[in-house]
Design a protein around this nucleic acid. Structure first.
Length: 435
RNA sequence: GCCCCGGUAGUGUAGUGGCCCAUCAUCCAAGCCUGUCGAGCUUGGGACUCGAGUUCAAAUCUCGGCCGGGGCGCCA
């Protein structure tokens, strides 16, 4: 055996029928029929069948039927055309190498007929991830990220990486993780907000980051993580938040479109993806209140929407044919300090919602230092804590805006997944720190 | 931070005071079977989260710990 693998399961075409090849992967199942046995081998692309005959190779036969499930093997053998086998061929083994023998019993079945709980699955995530539907999910995630790079770069954004260990909490409000930084205290960044804004003072003009968010909130829900990923975008020389929203909706459209092209993966996941129509509808906060009040929900002006109200709005909009919609012109009070005011009470902040779930939050930002300091004060923040951020506003900074966009939540909505923990490889939540 | 709920073989479950040295499936082990593909059949194996209490009797009731799930608030 010169190499452990010459072909993946799905790469074996007619041309190889009648020839010898080498395949490798995980032993998914062994069906011993007596004098012949079938071994189902799984690799990244799918499964294939190895068929062994007791009479032909008694030793190989015994070896194969005694391997434990989920062991890793490499098999050199004759590739025989067969209508009875999956993929139209089977491998008649001539040499088998056990590369890694799996212990029994498995802590989690890969193809067992019983489902396992999410907690058990996450405790054994490396086995859980062997399931084709999970591999499909993360392959789609990969494609989506690739479309983010393609789209934003085509719009002249450059990818940046900002620090995750920071000296002060980025925006106030959200709880942040504290850590020891030599003799000082430091924090894990809850978002790249202050850094991407600072970059607007450099002339790079358009930046984006696939960023980690760390949030120390003690929530325990299907849609919160303490460590999550996001697409963070910031752009300069905008006229207003509408310029930002245009980029965001095109980005989402491109991501959605790319996902819809993952036919094989979507088949495995039994999902269909319909493309949304551009542009997404814009609802002002005032219009949202009217809609909700008309439907019997008494929301006072200035209040944030509760989770229930958000869902109702999602239902109303879906009935009207809008899965995606922007909510614009939020009350200034409910938006963070860096949000550009629009008159006395309103702001230039917006949310992008999908079926009642907030996917993205953005705004035009304040670029005037005096106004920024005034807003910080109004929000109860100490400007002195933000000196290095404020400095960027003293020596020339253009009007700008941007958004943050949660990747896991997006995948939840895209693939109709009920728990956000499914959408990240190794989730961090209130209780989970391993694996 | 507040509020609900749960913990039974490796996995997933049934069992709400005695009928339980605990059900079923899956799984694991041994065996039979020359075309399996949710293989089939036979036999066997394996569990009540921990501690204290109530009771003649606890998987079952009470309290506490540990572990987990969900909702709200907040947010992505």
């Amino acid at each position: 055996m010169e190499t452990y693998r010459t072909h993946y399961s799905k790469d074996v075409t007619k041309d190889y029928f009648g020839k010898n090849i080498t395949v490798a992967g995980w032993v998914e199942d062994i069906r011993n029929i007596g004098s012949l046995a079938f071994v189902i081998l799984r690799d990244r692309l799918g499964t294939l069948q190895i068929t062994a005959f007791k009479k032909k190779h008694p030793e190989l036969f015994d070896m194969l039927v005694n391997i434990t499930r989920e062991s890793v093997i490499s098999v050199y053998g004759f590739c025989k055309q067969s209508d009875k086998a999956r993929n139209g061929y089977e491998i008649i083994p001539e040499e088998v190498k056990i590369l890694s023998l799996a212990e029994t019993p498995l802590p989690l079945g890969v193809v067992d007929k019983v489902e396992s709980e999410l907690d058990t699955r996450l405790d054994n995530r490396f086995i859980d991830l062997r399931k084709p539907e999970l591999q499909a999910l993360f392959k789609i995630r990969n494609e989506i990220i690739s479309s983010v790079h393609n789209y934003l770069r085509s719009e002249n954004f450059i990818e940046v990486h900002t620090p995750k260990i920071i000296a002060s909490s980025s925006e106030g409000g959200t709880d942040v993780f504290r850590l020891k930084y030599f003799e000082r205290e430091a924090f894990l960044a809850q978002s790249p907000q202050l850094y991407k804004q600072t970059l607007m003072a450099t002339g790079l003009d358009r930046v984006y980051e696939i960023a980690w968010y760390f949030r120390a909130e003690e929530h325990n829900t299907r849609r919160h993580l303490n460590e999550s990923t996001a697409i963070d975008v910031e752009m300069a020389f905008i006229k207003n938040e509408e310029d930002v929203m245009k980029i965001l909706e095109n980005l989402v459209y491109n991501m959605w479109k790319k996902a819809s092209e993952c036919k094989e993966e979507l088949t495995i996941l039994k999902r269909e993806i319909n493309l949304p129509n551009l542009p997404f509808i814009r609802l002002t906060y005032d219009e949202v209140l009217k809609l909700l009040n008309k439907n019997g929900y008494d929301v006072k002006w200035g209040d944030d929407l509760t989770t229930e109200q958000e869902k109702i709005l999602g239902d109303i909009m879906q009935k009207k044919g809008h899965e995606f919609y922007f909510i614009t012109k939020y009350p200034l009070e409910s938006k963070p300090f860096y949000t550009m005011p629009d008159g006395e009470k309103l702001s230039r902040g917006f949310d992008l919602e999908c079926k009642g779930m907030e996917l993205s939050s953005g705004s035009q930002r304040i670029h005037d230092k005096e106004l920024l300091e005034k807003r910080m004060k109004a929000c109860g923040l100490d400007a002195a804590q933000f000196e290095s951020y404020l400095k960027a506003f003293r020596y020339g900074i253009p009007p700008h805006g941007g958004f943050g966009f949660g990747i896991e939540r997006f995948i939840m909505e895209l693939l109709d997944i009920q728990n956000v923990r499914e959408c990240i490889l190794f989730p961090r939540d209130r209780n989970r720190l391993t694996p």
